[in-house]
């Protein structure tokens, strides 16, 4: 698959991620494994790893946000969400969801952001 391809072709016609909780600031990194890829039997029928899936796995050997993945690969955000969702379903990547989801009180979180910014100023 060389050259430009319309986004819906890359995602197999899907425009929604299989996991709805992927945000643009969710952090992604490939999980170790054979070539960072799952064994073929783990692949659901409708999902075949395409070139863009492999590019994501190649890029994400360390932590990057979904937005950074999209920017570095030159793909629309929506497409990257679908593809990262596939890789997540397959257990090929770990995804760290955005922070302010119940695990920390906003006040504590805001204080942590504030302290961090003041130190960097």
């Amino acid at each position: 698959m060389n050259g430009p391809v319309r986004p819906y072709v890359i995602t197999g016609g899907r425009s929604r991620p299989t996991r709805t909780d992927l945000a643009i600031e969710s952090l992604v990194s490939a999980l170790p494994g054979p070539l960072g890829l799952p064994e073929p039997p783990a692949l659901p029928e409708h999902v075949l790893l395409n070139r863009e899936h492999r590019r994501i796995l190649g890029l994400c050997h360390s932590l990057l946000s979904v937005a950074e993945v999209a920017a570095h690969l030159g793909l629309p955000l929506g497409v990257v969400k679908v593809l990262v969702g596939d890789l997540w379903d397959l257990g090929a990547v770990q995804v760290l969801p955005p922070v302010p989801q119940a695990e920390r009180l906003p006040t504590t979180l805001l204080e942590e952001v504030l302290v961090g910014l003041r130190q960097l100023r």
Partner: peptide, 17 residues
């Protein structure tokens, strides 16, 4: 244009925006 990815430290547990 991105010059190349600058990865986050592996100790990072999440992001805010």
């Amino acid at each position: 244009r991105p010059s190349g990815p600058q990865y986050l430290p592996s100790s990072v547990q999440g992001a805010v925006k």
